[in-house]
Write a protein that binds this DNA or RNA. Structure first.
Length: 304
DNA sequence: AAGACGAAAGTGGTTGA
DNA sequence: TCAACAACTTTCGTCTT
């Protein structure tokens, strides 16, 4: 387990830090503040190659975040042309020229796109695993010609959105939109298009994945945060979550938990952080109270 | 005066004929 | 391809703290 020499800047709590590797977050156990969202990955250095679990890759680490993956191909230039028939020769030249055009176009695009991706991803402080995955998906998209007719930036944004969700570090469309400057709807459209065309499966995101970040933004204590998580579990069991927007549910759970723990936040505050409206919070909130029998606790907490 | 509540109408996406 | 549909938003008037 990693040790942190830091103290929590918010509550001054000692080394009581919770390291959530999967989410790339370091959270203070005392106050729930997210200290560091982008972490060095101390885990296994050699990741499984693509979708072949168990098979470790060998040789130099190949990374998709460099535009040519550190490899690069070209049609040979040193073949002994004198031995080729004229026909084969011209074929050779045509191939080389064609390959050159295509690969330089793709590589130029990739180079730009990966730079943009880096910019957005560091703005959002995304963990490196997301960068990798996003770069991989983008590479596939360019090779399949899916970027044509769409702005490079919107595809980058859509791909990042997908990569975040696949790594269980979901960001809202609003957040990606703010970081990339691309319209929310546009991101959603390209996101759906790309995942459909590439056959990438993205599971519906789990409301719990949002709790740490929202709670931190609202400066809620760790107790409230874990209470929200418990409420969330109950909600799942009561089938209150399917078909609903995960951010709305997470927001409502936090809102209730905050009420119970006398850390009241207004619906507007929570709504802004979660990127939903007050109305949605109210609806989810009402369902939670009705179906989970939380009224007593909330009423009790009100008497202060 | 601010926050919470709920009704009503509008939006964009999904689904199923 | 179109219409029905569910979730969510916007807007607004009314109650509560």
């Amino acid at each position: 387990m990693a040790q942190f020499a830091k103290k929590c800047p918010e509550c001054g709590g000692g080394l009581n830090l919770l390291w959530n590797r999967a989410h790339g977050e370091v959270t203070c156990r005392d106050c729930g503040l997210v200290i560091e969202e982008k972490m060095v990955d101390f885990g296994q250095e050699w990741r499984d190659f693509d979708d072949a679990p168990g098979q470790r890759r060998a040789g130099a680490p190949m990374t998709y975040t460099q535009y040519d993956r550190g490899l690069g191909t070209e049609v040979g230039t040193r073949a002994d042309l004198s031995k080729l028939a004229q026909r084969d020769r011209s074929k050779f030249f045509r191939l080389r020229k064609w390959q050159y055009r295509v690969s330089t176009a793709i590589e130029r695009n990739l180079k730009m796109a990966l730079a943009e991706m880096k910019r957005v991803s560091s703005y959002l402080r995304l963990p490196g695993s997301v960068d990798e995955e996003a770069a991989r998906i983008y590479t596939q998209a360019v090779q399949r010609g899916l970027v044509r007719g769409r702005s490079m930036e919107s595809v980058v944004a859509g791909v990042l959105y997908a990569a975040c969700r696949r790594n269980e570090v979901p960001r809202t469309l609003d957040e990606i939109s703010e970081a990339s400057g691309i319209d929310k709807k546009e991101i959603g459209r390209t996101y759906r298009f790309i995942t459909r065309e590439l056959g990438i499966k993205v599971l519906p995101s789990n409301p719990a994945d949002y709790i740490a970040r929202f709670a931190s933004a609202l400066k809620l204590t760790a107790e409230t945060q874990s209470r929200a998580l418990r409420i969330l579990e109950q909600a799942q069991d009561a089938e209150l979550t399917s078909g609903r927007g995960p951010t709305g549910i997470a927001a409502a759970a936090l809102y209730v938990a905050a009420l119970i723990h006398a850390e009241r936040r207004t619906q507007r505050e929570v709504a802004d952080v979660a990127g939903v409206t007050e109305v949605t919070i109210r609806n989810r909130y009402k369902e939670l109270l009705d179906r989970l029998g939380l009224e007593k606790e909330v009423d009790k907490a009100r008497e202060d």
